[in-house]
């Protein structure tokens, strides 16, 4: 009866972690609502700052929506590992026999389900408020679904590197915003193309390619970052 034989396999352990993270989030629903509320409020800032002219807003809408999605993702990234670091769960996770690569993916997956997915699902409402043309809304949702997953993975790197620091909040934006830029460029370009009636699939494909790269490499960096943070 050895402990190794009994340990759940990596896939099963990932599901356990995912369920744990989702339960934790559901028990504090305001944490799920905050990024969405943030999204809604910043959308309201743009007409106030840029003026209410509908066609002007429509022109800026792809960029505006993408920047807000990026910011709300950025603001939540900091929390991915923080509570686990503070209560000691993180060091137990590092000692787990399952590969950290996959455990980290489960954490990021939970984060994406709670922020990126929900943002993408509510974005059509805000797109209509900013007069984005109807055919572009579908592309917006698709680009957000793919793009926010990349953002969550990249944000996880920043979170892992700063989780041990007391004042990580501002620092994480400094670290990861440059890495967010390619996603922003192609995400907003996809939506703008859809507005102009040009096929947006090439841009979506590029974001999907970035997602593949991020899934393959980001967990390595996150795992290394977590080991460093727990050790510091």
């Amino acid at each position: 009866m050895s402990a190794v034989a009994q340990a759940p396999g990596p896939a099963r352990f990932c599901l356990v972690l995912l369920r744990r993270q989702l339960t934790l989030a559901v028990r504090r629903p305001i944490e799920i609502g905050n990024p969405l509320l943030f999204f809604a409020m910043v959308v309201a800032l743009f007409p106030l700052g840029l003026g209410p002219a509908p066609d002007q807003l429509a022109g800026f809408a792809p960029g505006i929506l993408w920047i807000i999605a990026l910011l709300s993702n950025l603001l939540t990234s900091d929390t991915v590992f923080r509570s686990d670091f503070e209560d000691g769960s993180l060091e137990q996770l590092l000692l787990a026999p399952q590969p950290l690569f996959l455990s980290v993916l489960a954490y990021i997956g939970a984060h994406w389900l709670l922020t990126g997915l929900l943002l993408a699902l509510v974005s059509p409402v805000f797109a209509l408020m900013l007069n984005l043309s109807a055919p572009a809304v579908g592309v917006l949702v698709a680009s957000l679904l793919l793009g926010t997953a990349v953002l969550s993975l990249v944000g996880g790197i920043g979170a892992a590197l700063t989780v041990g620091l007391k004042r990580g909040g501002m620092l994480i934006s400094l670290l990861i915003l440059p890495f967010y830029m390619p996603v922003l460029i192609f995400g907003s370009a996809a939506v703008r193309n859809a507005v102009l009636g040009i096929p947006a699939t090439p841009y979506l494909a590029i974001i999907a390619a970035m997602l593949c790269l991020a899934i393959a490499l980001a967990p390595l960096a996150i795992a290394a970052g977590l080991r460093i943070s727990v050790d510091a």
Binding site: T162, L165, L213
Partner: peptide, 26 residues
Amino acid sequence: ALYEAYDNKEAAGKACAVLTLVGMVN
């Protein structure tokens, strides 16, 4: 900024190394 934020300079070095490698890919 990341290097300066860490008190433990050895950890700072490792964290920055991870960050620069991520940067090199990016």
